[in-house]
Write a protein that binds this DNA or RNA. Structure first.
Lengths: 142, 142
DNA sequence: TCCTTTTAAGACTAATTTGTCTTAAATATA
DNA sequence: TATATTTAAGACAAATTAGTCTTAAAAGGA
């Protein structure tokens, strides 16, 4: 699988949050709607908050919300916050510092494919899906 | 990470085997050369053997070898043998049966990117790297 | 101020993946 | 045939990831 389970949860939650017009959405609502364990989701969203992708508010009327405009939140930033940068340096043989200078045998062939993957994650932002998610015609769970 | 650690080991070992002119290579030699735990590698290569990607021979002069021409062994077949088909159905939100009929909000955007990834894995075969690996100018370990 | 609600933090458990070790089975060769 | 070598199989342990639970801290409202 491309990403960790936590990372997939994070992307789903981020899509959900960005589709809600309210600034702040309680995590309980997200976990109910997306059928994700509340406590696990809380931990994951805390990471997004620490990375300044979300803001959070405690107490009644509390919850989480986007910390910047949806068009400034890329899938890449979410993956980076949850799974770290391992993915982005990804060598097909998992060599430590596989590079043009010290490449593995697949490096040259793999590079353009990885580039396209990165381009997609960089250029894809939450705002692109807001209307789809709002329409409720697209699956957000199981 | 794209694939499991076991899968990366499998690809590395397959490249090594296909670059050796001998039909049969002892697993001990592979694990020594690639610095992979012998017993763990043995288990992984057993899976490739069960999937008829490799053949194996017990006893002195035993070892593993390609079960078909290198140009017929794709990266995809190795990934499939080790990690199963989860990767190939991969939805960005990890939904169970995300499809054109019942898509997640990112499905349409993700589809062409995944297609390119699959094309690469399908069209890339071991023979393409034999000379590079033989030249020993490319890294095969850490 | 006090109570309730909600996130933050972290200890703890469960599941999965990774890695080790022992024994069995097959086979070449002396 | 006996021995040494090598893969096969599977039990077991360690590490990582996923998930649960409890308590603390913050904030709104009576």
């Amino acid at each position: 699988m491309l990403f960790s389970k936590a990372c997939h949860y994070a992307i789903r939650a981020a899509l959900y949050i960005s589709s809600r017009s309210e600034n702040i959405v309680p995590i309980r609502e997200i976990s109910d709607e997306l059928e994700i364990s509340f406590h696990f989701l809380t931990k994951i969203l805390q990471q997004l908050t620490r990375h300044h992708i979300l803001t959070s508010l405690k107490g009644p009327k509390g919850g989480v919300g986007l910390n910047k405009p949806a068009e400034e939140i890329s899938l890449k930033s979410i993956v980076l916050a949850i799974d770290g940068q391992d993915f982005f340096e990804g060598c097909l043989l998992r060599l430590d510092k596989c590079s043009d200078a010290h490449p593995c045998p697949i490096h040259d062939e793999w590079k353009p494919v990885r580039r396209q993957l990165l381009n997609f994650l960089e250029s894809t932002t939450l705002d692109q899906f807001q209307s789809k998610v709002k329409s409720k015609k697209f699956r957000m769970k199981v």
